[in-house]
């Protein structure tokens, strides 16, 4: 990658199967345009997202991470997103405290009916991460053969 103008951020999105992934699907079938910088990992529930995955993604050179689940009260497993909210709040506080840029890791609630909101969130996250530039803070600069 040369100048900042050419920089295309890579955003990893952990989307809950029941809401946000379906929201992404709706955005797709509604032909809504959003930046192609997002790579989606479908997870059963936002409560299944291990905060270590997020750290690992940043270490492997992802420029931004989004975790998205069902709105409070709508969890398919009743309380997964409530548990996730506590855990991710602490991850956010920790990253803020140690000096990670705000916006590198984002969180959202997107329901299956919110295709518009999904497209909007992806636009926002991509532009935020683009403005921050390549993620480098946690990146491991060692050649590995995997």
């Amino acid at each position: 990658m040369s100048g900042d103008g050419d920089f295309q951020p890579r955003v990893l999105a952990f989307l809950c199967h029941w809401c946000s992934y379906a929201g992404a699907d709706l955005a797709g079938i509604s032909r809504l345009q959003y930046p192609p910088n997002v790579r989606v990992v479908r997870v059963p529930c936002s409560g299944a997202v291990n905060p270590l995955w997020i750290l690992k993604a940043l270490q492997r050179g992802v420029d931004g991470v989004l975790v998205s689940g069902c709105h409070p009260g709508d969890c398919h497993y009743l309380a997964g997103n409530y548990v996730a909210r506590r855990r991710l709040a602490l991850l956010k506080d920790l990253l803020d405290y140690v000096g990670m840029e705000p916006g590198r890791v984002s969180f959202s609630w997107v329901s299956a009916a919110e295709g518009q909101k999904f497209a909007q969130i992806i636009r926002e996250v991509t532009e935020t991460v683009r403005a921050l530039g390549p993620g480098r803070k946690l990146v491991k600069e060692v050649a590995t053969d995997d």
Partner: peptide, 8 residues
Amino acid sequence: EDPGDFIK
């Protein structure tokens, strides 16, 4: 009612 201010 846990705070969720950081979630979009």
